[in-house]
Amino acid sequence: MNIENAKAQMRKGVLELCILSLIKETPAYVPDLMERLQKSQLAVVEGTLYPLLTRLKNSGVLTYKWQESKSGPPRKYYELTTQGKLALTELEEGWRQLVESVNITLNQQPS
């Protein structure tokens, strides 16, 4: 069993939830998201986010607005759609249930 790999899989699994949650209040572009994710010590690289955001956008959960930048190319600022907000509440509920179940599983004493 590849432990590093298993950990990475776990991180990736909850990444969608985290991203939706992070842009719930304020629109963000990828480096912003990275900063917030690093603050919460969720180790990911930007490369992981681009395909994820694109797919979420294509499924209608996210949308983006172009914003001019001072020197570089325009930036994509992502925000939630109504559908996204619904999805987020469902995912949050799912996560809570999962944490609960996992915790119960982990704390279960052999009887």
Partner: peptide, 8 residues
């Protein structure tokens, strides 16, 4: 997107 980010 990646290329735009590389520019930055």
């Amino acid at each position: 997107d990646v290329e735009a980010r590389l520019v930055e």
